[in-house]
Design a protein around this nucleic acid. Structure first.
Lengths: 139, 139
DNA sequence: TTGACAATATTTCTTTTTCAATTATTTCAG
DNA sequence: CTGAAATAATTGAAAAAGAAATATTGTCAA
């Protein structure tokens, strides 16, 4: 069997593409001065709010201790606030503050535009196929 | 148009899958006690050696200052050594030392096994299709 | 040939991230 | 009910990453 060259490995292609997409997103967020992680957190909250720390961590792919510190910063910037969960007081729920909502409203297009660029680059049936392949490999 | 849920976004799927593959690889490398970055550097060198720092950096997706520090460590562990490029003395070429070659020989299977698992999980035509889709999106 | 600019790698300094341990709360078997 | 184990989040120390500055060498137009 011919040796698989690194650049042909699926894991490597995925890592490279991931890097490329992150750099792209970061660059487009830079004018707003918003770190990509903060943006992802706002995305998670936009989808379902309020959300406990653990939920945000797993969805945004950020480790819990890191998330705590990022949220600290976002709280101090007035983007979100913490609200202890009355049903389970171990939990801390995060809620988007008005400033956070406004910020996200300004920036959400950055992410959807990226998705659109990808889908356009492939034709849409192939984009759907890619989506399926990735899903199949997850878990 | 219905709002694209975060979990359906290609960028998110790619980030998630990338994370999953990295965790998987890291776990399998742990017995050898080798950080994933060192392994990737050895992979790059295995493909073409000697290689200048810049080349290793871009291929392994590691930033130059970080790479310098990792190579420092690898040199002190006797895995690689530095050799100034005689043709361009700004460059520093990295060469795999015998211990590095031995280590890589023991561990290379980890990476090819991962590739195989992916290819098997999909059938191989679909793996080929995935490869093409990813390539198309790169650059 | 020179002098300005570019390229390569490293260093330094600051900021982030991670890892392990800690606190607080909940759950549940006995 | 009690207390041991589990879960959620945070903290603090150490490690890693990142940005900017530096050192060195190379390139090329004037």
């Amino acid at each position: 069997m011919a040796p698989v060259r690194m650049k042909d490995q699926l894991a490597y292609l995925i890592a490279s593409l991931n890097r490329q997409l992150e750099n792209d997103l970061e660059e487009r967020l830079r004018p707003g001065g918003v770190p990509i992680e903060q943006f992802r957190i706002l995305e998670v909250l936009d989808a379902s709010e309020p959300a406990p720390m653990g939920e945000i961590a797993s969805q945004s792919l950020i480790e819990p201790p890191t998330l705590t510190k990022i949220v600290d910063k976002m709280v101090s910037e007035g983007l979100v606030y913490r609200a202890p969960d009355p049903n389970d007081r171990r939990r801390v729920l995060i809620v988007t503050a008005p400033a956070g909502k406004a910020l996200f409203k300004r920036l959400r297009g950055v992410s959807t535009a990226q998705e659109q660029r990808i889908v356009e680059l492939l034709e849409s049936e192939r984009a759907a196929e890619l989506r399926n392949l990735l899903r199949e490999l997850l878990q």
